[in-house]
Amino acid sequence: MKKKTLSLFGVGAVMAMSAAAMARLLNHDAIESKAAGTPYEVKQVVGVNGITNDGSWEGVEEAAMTGVNEGKLQFPSIDTRVFMKLTIHDDTHRADKERLEYTFTVGGKVQAQIGSIRGDWLQPNPRLDYGNCVQADFGYDESARMYTFVTGFEMGTDWEVGLIF
């Protein structure tokens, strides 16, 4: 499967960061300002009843995360819904303590959440302009020591071929 790496810093650099630098890294504005390179292409996949299932993710381009943990992201679309799947390795499984944060910015709209990866706490950060998530799946594979997180939102009439966000 084709992999695409879009890194902000090398792994070594991240490991050497101070706590303050890491906190800054996770700051939405700081990350967004660093976005560069060819946009990731969000392609249509087949889901079930408008949401993804395991088969939906087969063949979807993987983008590597940068950091100590080995992680990857996938972004497909089902009609006018955009989805994200995070798969990340973590030997120390404590779902309520790991911090998860994501932000989609579409023009002036923001779809962003922050919280844990346990599933019972993931709050708007600062808002969900496209409404509640149409899918929110959390999982941890003990044998692979791997978290998975799937979310998606309905972009509605804002969805348009060629839109960069």
Binding site: L6, P39, K43, A64, L73, M84, E101, Y102, L163, F165
Partner: peptide
């Protein structure tokens, strides 16, 4: 869009520990 995941390790509090990140433009294709 951007994603951050912070691994609290075996004993850290929420939001502490190693940071992992991703940031890229997405295009609907």
């Amino acid at each position: 869009m951007s994603v951050g995941f912070q691994d609290s390790g075996a004993e850290g509090e929420w939001g502490s520990g190693n940071a992992n990140s991703f940031a890229s433009d997405l295009v609907l294709a």
